[in-house]
């Protein structure tokens, strides 16, 4: 593993809890890592297995899904749906044979920017130990998709 390996992280963030958290974390003087790409979704329940697999396919070293706590979901059932999708994704990642630790689901409330910061830095630490993703980028373009 190269010493100066900077992992590429994709974070899918719910608009209602984690997007404000990210803003706060960026605004504060905290050490918020620059190598993390935030994809803002209107709800954590919007995340599908395809989003996560596609991120890995296109060269992400780690994928982080950040949603509300189940009881705080703005759309009532979205966060619960995200949990189900993430459970399925973990099973599939395990079967496909790259480290399940490359994928993580975190739940935050909109005030917990310190907690979020800590969680994301821990996650980056884990990915740094694992090294680059075994999946090599294959594609010139991304496919158009339907739900």
């Amino acid at each position: 593993m190269a010493k100066n390996f900077i992992p590429k992280i994709v974070a899918f963030c719910c608009n209602w809890s984690t997007a404000p958290v990210v803003n706060k974390a960026v605004e504060s003087d905290a050490q918020f890592p620059p190598n993390i790409k935030i994809v803002k979704l209107m709800c954590g329940g919007m995340v599908t297995l395809a989003f996560i697999l596609k991120a890995f396919e296109l060269g992400a070293d780690g994928v982080f899904v950040a949603t509300c706590r189940v009881e705080d979901c703005h759309y009532v059932t979205g966060a619960r749906r995200a949990v189900d999708v993430c459970d399925n994704t973990k099973k599939l990642i395990d079967m496909l044979g790259f480290e399940p630790g490359r994928f993580k689901l975190g739940r935050f409330s909109s005030l917990e920017h310190k907690v979020f910061e800590k969680a994301i830095n821990e996650f980056i630490g884990v990915i740094k130990k694992m090294g680059p993703s075994p999946i090599k980028v294959q594609r010139r373009t991304t496919a158009s998709t339907s739900r």
Binding site: L49, A50, F56, E57, K136, Q138, R139, T141, A143, T145
Partner: peptide, 20 residues
């Protein structure tokens, strides 16, 4: 040019991951 993949392209992404 590309097809519109069903299921958000999950199946195709999985197959391309398997080329590793």
């Amino acid at each position: 040019e590309e097809a519109i993949c069903s299921h958000g392209g999950a199946a195709q992404a999985m197959m391309r991951i398997m080329t590793a």
